[in-house]
Lab assay of single mutants.
Amino acid sequence: DETGKFLVLALYDYQEKSPREVTAKKGDILTLLNSTNKDWWKVEVNGRQGFVPAAYVKFL
């Protein structure tokens, strides 16, 4: 159920650099879980949760 969740689009490829991050490919649609940090947003992609740089994604 996606009610109340926001989707964001990956603008660039991002390769995770730590276990707390997730890899995303340009064009991926990610479920935004938390955007309270202006630099790192928590997302879910391909069943995995983790952080990506906020500058790499935008709201749909």
Rank of each mutant, 00 (worst) to 15 (best):
I29M: 06
E21A: 04
L7E: 06
A24E: 03
K26D: 02
T31C: 13
Y12W: 12
V43W: 03
A55N: 11
F51A: 02
D28K: 02
L32Y: 02
A24Q: 09
E44A: 07
D39K: 13
K58Q: 14
L9M: 13
G47P: 02
T3N: 12
N37P: 03
V57H: 00
A55E: 10
F6M: 14
V45Q: 06
Q15T: 14
W41K: 00
T31G: 04
Y14P: 02
V22I: 13
A10Y: 05
E44R: 05
D39H: 14
E2R: 13
Q15K: 12
S18E: 08
E21D: 05
N37D: 14
A54M: 05
L9R: 06
K17P: 02
L11H: 02
V22P: 01
T3Y: 13
R20S: 12
V22W: 03
F6V: 15
G4H: 13
R20I: 12
K38A: 11
L7F: 15
L30N: 00
D39F: 15
K26Q: 10
Y56V: 15
N34E: 14
E44S: 08
I29Q: 03
E2T: 13
F59R: 10
L11P: 00
L33P: 00
Y14G: 01
K26R: 10
F51K: 01
L11Y: 04
Q15C: 14
F51T: 02
D39I: 13
P53L: 09
T36W: 10
L11F: 05
K26Y: 05
F6E: 08
L60N: 06
K42T: 07
T36P: 03
Y14H: 03
K25C: 12
L9E: 11
P53I: 08
V22D: 03
Y14K: 01
E44Q: 07
L30H: 01
W40S: 00
D39Q: 11
F51G: 01
P53K: 05
A55K: 14
P19K: 10
E21Q: 09
K38Q: 10
T3P: 13
N37H: 11
T36D: 14
G27C: 10
V57S: 00
D1E: 13
T23I: 03
V43S: 00
V45R: 07
W40A: 00
F59G: 06
K58T: 15
A24F: 15
D39G: 08
A10L: 15
E21Y: 07
F6R: 14
R20L: 14
F59P: 13
D28A: 08
D1L: 14
L33H: 02
E21T: 07
V8H: 05
S35N: 12
D1Q: 13
G50C: 08
N46M: 07
S35K: 12
E21M: 05
D28V: 05
V52G: 02
V52A: 02
S18D: 10
